[in-house]
């Protein structure tokens, strides 16, 4: 089975890999003066859906299969590709991190981008969503041995989801009980990742605070547990699970100032009976389920769309 730390590995790679590493550099191009009537043959022969139009070594535009179909449908006279191509071409620089490419695909909904050199603006290649997935897989295979097929499938689906603006990120980590020294490390990594994803700072802050408090509760009261964070387009869901000891009186536990924390915890500045209230304050919705001897599950939902009105948190 694929584990979530692999998924977060994908996340890291999106920042490490450059556009130039995964683009196709062996690109078919056409000259601007090529007649439209010749385009069918080129598109068919090369089995591609779009071709950069190049004047010398400079990018002049992109001509796509859609442009060709439109030209056919309009039954116009033959003309040069330069007249029908999209001239206002969005490009990527070869030295940009892959995450920029992902964002551009997401933002503009295009199937491909031309990749140019930052300095001399020369056309270097072309990049598609498929190139990104393939490039990531190639990198990941270095430290990946088993379960290749499942893995490939999951990663590419995960990536399709990124592009389709569905599930953006899954993040999971274990928290050891009573390990005060390392408390907050998971929440800290999560915060960094959410920032990189470009979420509003006040949303990131609320998720970080809620997750940190939840992590602290696992450390203080349990033998450890798991925190799983799912970042969707509209909502961030943090699920916190442990396997005991459970909360005897949930209603009481939610009262500000109610605490069963031992003295050592209080002397460290926690355990004053504010943790769950704090989480609730940060959340749009919080659900707490617990059974004594079995464990506790906490669901924290934070909407990514209402940053402004909740800034006071």
């Amino acid at each position: 089975m694929i584990s979530d730390n692999r998924i977060s590995k994908v996340q890291e790679l999106v920042y490490e890999i450059r556009v130039g590493d995964v683009m196709q550099s062996d690109v078919i191009t056409v000259a601007p003066e090529t007649p439209m009537s010749q385009l069918r043959g080129i598109l068919k022969k090369e089995r591609i859906s779009g071709i950069p139009v190049v004047n010398g070594d400079r990018l002049a535009g992109i001509i796509s299969i859609e442009d060709f179909i439109k030209w056919l449908a309009d039954r116009e006279e033959d003309c040069s590709i330069a007249e029908k191509m999209s001239k206002n071409v969005h490009t990527l620089y070869a030295d940009e991190p892959l995450t920029h490419a992902v964002n551009m695909f997401q933002l503009l909904g295009f199937g491909r981008f031309a990749v140019i050199d930052r300095q001399d603006k020369r056309l270097l290649g072309i990049i598609t969503k498929g190139d990104i997935v393939r490039g990531l897989l190639k990198k990941l295979e270095i430290d990946h041995v088993e379960g290749e097929d499942i893995y490939r499938h999951k990663v590419s689906r995960f990536f399709d989801n990124i592009l389709a603006d569905q599930v953006v990120l899954l993040f999971q980590y274990d928290v050891a009980g009573h390990d005060f020294k390392h408390a907050g490390e998971g929440a800290s990594r999560l915060k960094t990742t959410l920032r990189r994803l470009g979420l509003a700072p006040q949303i990131v802050r609320r998720v970080a605070i809620a997750t940190y408090e939840a992590e602290m509760n696992l450390i203080i009261y349990t033998d450890g547990g798991k925190i799983r964070v799912r970042v969707g387009p509209d909502e961030i869901l943090v699920i916190v699970r442990d396997s005991g000891p459970g909360i005897a009186d949930v209603e009481k536990a939610l009262q500000p100032g109610y605490s069963t924390a031992p003295e050592w915890v209080r002397e460290l500045g926690f355990g004053a009976g504010m943790g769950l209230c704090n989480i609730k304050k940060c959340a749009n919705k919080m659900d707490l389920m617990s059974s004594v001897g079995k464990g506790t599950q906490l669901y924290i939902r934070i909407s990514t769309n209402d940053g402004a009105e909740r800034e006071a948190v």
Partner: peptide, 23 residues
């Protein structure tokens, strides 16, 4: 009390405290 800080402090606040642990 760090929970209090998390609940009430604003971004860009300076925290005065007698606690010195890494939390």
């Amino acid at each position: 009390l760090m929970s209090d800080v998390l609940a009430f402090a604003r971004p860009k606040a300076v925290l005065l405290t007698g606690m010195t642990n890494s939390q």
